[in-house]
Simulated scan of single mutants.
Amino acid sequence: MSLLLICHIGFVGAVEKQQTSAQDPLYDGPYLFEQTKTQQSQQAYWICASELQATRVINNELKRPNECGKLPEPKLNPKAKEIAANTYTNVSKIVALSDVHGQYDVLITLLKNQKIIDEHNNWVYGTGHMVMTGDMFDRGHQVNEVLWFMYKLDKQASDAGGKLHLLMGNHEQMVMRGDLRYVNERYQTAEKLLERSYDELYDSSSEIGQWLRSKHTIVKINDSLFLHGGISGEWVDRELTLDKANQVYRANIDKSKPELKSDDLLNFLFLGNGPTWFRGYFEDDYQESEINRVLAYFDVKHIVVGHTSQTRVLGLFNNKVLAVDSSIKNGQSGELLLITPNEGQDTLIRGLYDGSRVTL
C-alpha cells in the first residue's frame, strides 16, 4: 500500500476512528513511516483500544494519544541507520542473548535482574557490548515493544561508550521478504487499520525497518564470533569475509525466496545451511575438527549462536560453541551469557532469570 493512503487517515485530533471486530481492546504502536509531500508534518500511528489514532512527531519525539495504555514513546535517533563496524577489539565485557520472539516482559525482567538496564529500562551496562543474536520477530505478542526498546537501547549504549549489536536472524529475514507464517494474530489489527500487510509495517519506508536494514548479520568482538544460527564449513570453502557477507545481506534482504534461490551465493547465505539457519553444531554426528577449522578461519576462540532452543545457556565442544537461545520465546524465563576477558582466558558466566550467576 502507498503512503498516500495512510496520509489520508488524517492529522492529529482529526483521525477517523476505525473499529476492529468485537474483541478485547487492543493497544499497539507506534508505527512511523517517512513523511510524504502531501503531509504537513510527520505522523506516528497508534492503535488505542482497537481504534486507529495519530499524533504529530515534534522535535523527534513520539507521544502517544491520551488513554492509550503504556505504549512506547520513543525519541528518534538521527544516527540510527549508520552502519557500524564488523569487528571490535579490547571490549571489556560482553552480554549476549537470543530469540526473544516478542516476549518483551521476559526480556525486560532478565535484563533488569542482570543489571544490564535499570528500573526505568535504561542502559546501565556502561562501556560493555550487548549482542542480540536475532529473532525478535514472530511468535510472541509484543514484537513492536521489543523493537522500540532495542531502538532506544541502541542509542543509550552508544552514548555511554558501549554498543548494542542487533544481528539479523532467520525470522527478521522471513518477515522482510513477506513470509508471515509465524506472525502473532494480534498484529492482524494493525494490518487492517493501517491497510498494510505485516511486512509493510517494517518496510524500507518505516523508521524501524530502515534501522533494521542497517544492521549486521555477523559480528566479531574480541575473540568471539556472534551470529544467529552457525557457520558451516561451506563458509570457509567459499572464503567469505564478514564485510562481504554483511554487505550482501543488507543489499538483498528484501528479495523474494525465488530470487534468493536463483543465485548461488544468496541461496547459501539466506537459506539452507547459511549462517541464519545452520544447526549443525547440535547434531550428533558433527565433528569437533570442523568447528576447529571454522575457529581458525576467523581467528576466534568461541562462536556464539542462538536459533536452536535450549533450556539454558550451553557450552559445546569445550565452550568453543556457546548456545544462547534459552527458550525466552516460551514466555516464562530465560538466561543470558556474560563474557569477560581475563588475561587471555575468557570468563564465561550464565546470567539466570532471577539475577544470579553461574560459571559456565
Rank of each mutant, 00 (worst) to 15 (best):
Q103F: 02
Q103C: 04
Y104K: 00
Y104A: 00
V106P: 00
V106T: 08
I108P: 01
T109C: 03
L110K: 07
N113K: 06
N113R: 04
Q114A: 01
N121V: 06
N121F: 02
G126T: 03
T127W: 00
G128I: 02
M130E: 01
M136N: 05
F137G: 01
D138W: 03
G140V: 06
G140Y: 05
G140H: 04
Q142Y: 10
N144H: 12
W148C: 02
Y151M: 09
K152A: 11
D154Q: 11
K155W: 13
A157P: 05
A160W: 05
A160Y: 08
G162H: 06
H165L: 04
L166V: 05
L166E: 03
L166Y: 13
H171V: 06
H171R: 07
E172R: 03
Q173L: 15
M174G: 01
M174Q: 11
M174Y: 06
V175E: 03
V175G: 01
R177V: 10
D179M: 09
L180M: 12
Y182D: 14
Y182E: 14
N184D: 08
R186S: 12
Q188M: 09
E191A: 08
R196Y: 05
S197F: 15
Y198E: 08
L201R: 09
L201I: 06
S206A: 09
E207A: 12
E207V: 15
I208Q: 02
I208V: 09
L212I: 14
L212G: 01
R213H: 14
S214T: 08
